[in-house]
């Protein structure tokens, strides 16, 4: 099969660009730990309220871990618990969340905190809140008639 010289140049260039992209995100994910939220822990979706840490939603200071705080959220149609929470500026926070019923989304608008909540699974992401202000948490996976009413608020305070 014959290929024009320019097409070879183009494909080598394109392949090279894709390889660079993959290397950047691969190194970032596997060496620096910036993986997409992929916690493999499970939970009984009908016993969320009585299973730690979801029996006490909200912000908790922790010691001896790679992060300073744990922020626990429980999602159910059509609300999050807690409905509002204050987080200190610059704190390294592990957000831990799960769903009691159907699929929900969990996105803090304007940040990289964006993950699916799936009944039976725990979703986790570690993040540092670098900027002060209010960050709206929205449900971004359709969950029923009140989907667009489902929200919470993280206030990053100094």
């Amino acid at each position: 099969m014959h290929m024009h010289k320019f097409e070879k140049i183009w494909l080598i260039f394109g392949f090279g660009a894709l390889l660079v992209f993959l290397t950047v995100i691969g190194v970032s994910a596997f060496y620096l730990g910036n993986q997409p939220p992929s916690c493999l822990a499970t939970i009984d979706p009908e016993k969320v309220d009585t299973t730690a840490p979801f029996d006490k939603p909200g912000l908790k200071k922790v010691e001896g871990k790679e992060w300073d705080y744990e922020l626990v959220f429980v999602a159910s149609a059509f609300s999050y618990s807690p409905a509002r929470v204050e987080v200190p500026l610059g704190a390294k926070v592990k957000v831990i969340a799960t769903s009691k019923d159907v699929m929900h989304g969990f996105q803090a608008a304007g940040t990289n905190v964006n993950m699916m909540l799936e009944p039976g699974y725990i979703s986790e992401v570690v993040t540092t809140f670098k900027n002060p202000g209010e960050f709206l948490i929205v449900c971004n996976e359709y969950c029923g008639v009140g989907h667009h009413m489902m929200h919470s608020m993280i206030e990053v305070v100094e």
Partner: peptide
């Protein structure tokens, strides 16, 4: 940060929304 698949909402008067 605007979500897909959502009807109109002011999300409790949020400035971002």
């Amino acid at each position: 940060g605007g979500p897909r698949r959502s009807a109109f909402s002011d999300y409790g008067g949020s400035a971002q929304a």
